Amino acid sequence: MFNKTVARLTYKALLGRRRALLLCALPLLLIVVAVAVRLLGDVDDDVTKQLLGGFAMATIVPLIGVVAGTGAIGPEIDDGSVVYLLAKPARRSSIVVTKLLVAIGVTVVFSAVPTFVAGYVLNGDSQQIASAYAVAAAAASVAYSALFLLLGTVSRHAVVIGLVYALIWEALFGNLVPGARELSVQQWALTLAQKVGGSGAGITSEVGTATGVTLLVVATVGGAWYASRRLRAFTLAGEE
């Protein structure tokens, strides 16, 4: 199912100059903010959770997911170069799985790792808060990659739609509107942070652990499956 040629092309597309700058800028911003907060005074567990939950999980992680997920396939569809890929003797499901795995790898590296570093800078790994949020960021990265990869196959405005989702739904409604929280990838992933941190960390989610994990799996598998179906609908002329 894993195609090395497709993986190499996808890595090259994601880590090109423009996207690489954005992928580096977002986690760097998170770490810079964490350092600034740490230098301004004493930082306790509550401050750490506010920054990691309200900024890293709600903004940085979904934005990186948008960049990596849509960038894994969207530009090839937009410029028509996808037809050369589809002409290769490779199953389209294999193409989607490969691109998804690459997008997941990139998203995890640029989101989960900086989340842990930011948490450690703020307050060490007190109550395993940094570790808990890093696990949540990694889990969210998987779901975001699948959903935004799917979005890249269904719309030529995938980046714009993804940004609206990340900045309005996840960052705003996902934190402020109780009903919307249950439909937030962020909240699903926080169930794992709650599990890792335990009662001492005080991390909470609007959904239960079993529900959160199930929804993460459904979003990931469902997104990959439907993206494969969408890709099968493309002809070698680049049209559906």
Rank of each mutant, 00 (worst) to 15 (best):
S126E: 11
T70C: 15
T98F: 07
P75Y: 10
Q127W: 07
A56E: 08
A103E: 00
V83P: 06
Y84K: 08
V106W: 05
Y84W: 15
F55R: 00
F55C: 00
S126V: 08
L51K: 05
A90F: 15
V82Q: 02
G124C: 06
T70A: 13
G53K: 03
K99Y: 11
G69L: 15
S94R: 02
Q50C: 00
L52W: 02
S93A: 13
G124W: 05
V97M: 15
L100T: 10
A72K: 00
V108C: 04
S111Q: 03
P89Y: 11
S111T: 07
P114S: 05
N123F: 06
A118G: 07
P89E: 10
P62Y: 02
T48W: 09
L100F: 15
D79L: 04
G71H: 01
V61M: 09
I77P: 10
F116M: 02
A90H: 13
Y84N: 11
S93F: 12
V61W: 05
G71E: 00
T107C: 07
P75D: 12
A56D: 07
L51S: 07
T59W: 14
L63D: 09
A72N: 05
I77F: 09
A56K: 12
V117N: 00
V67P: 06
L63Y: 12
L86R: 09
T115E: 05
P89N: 10
S81N: 13
G124P: 04
F55W: 01
V121Y: 08
Y84Q: 08
S126T: 14
D125W: 06
A56I: 09
S111N: 05
P75G: 12
S81V: 14
K88Q: 15
V102Q: 13
T70S: 13
I77N: 05
I64W: 00
L100Y: 15
K88M: 13
K49C: 04
G119C: 06
I64G: 02
Q50P: 02
L52T: 03
V109F: 12
S81A: 14
V96L: 12
A103T: 01
D79A: 06
P62M: 04
S94Y: 00
F116E: 01
A72D: 02
I60A: 14
A112W: 06
M57E: 11
P89A: 09
V61C: 10
L86E: 02
V108L: 13
A103V: 01
G71N: 03
A58M: 11
V47C: 00
V106Y: 04
L51V: 15
M57R: 10
I104N: 11
S93H: 07
T59E: 11
K49P: 02
K88H: 03
L52M: 02
D79I: 06
V97T: 12
Y84M: 13
A58R: 09
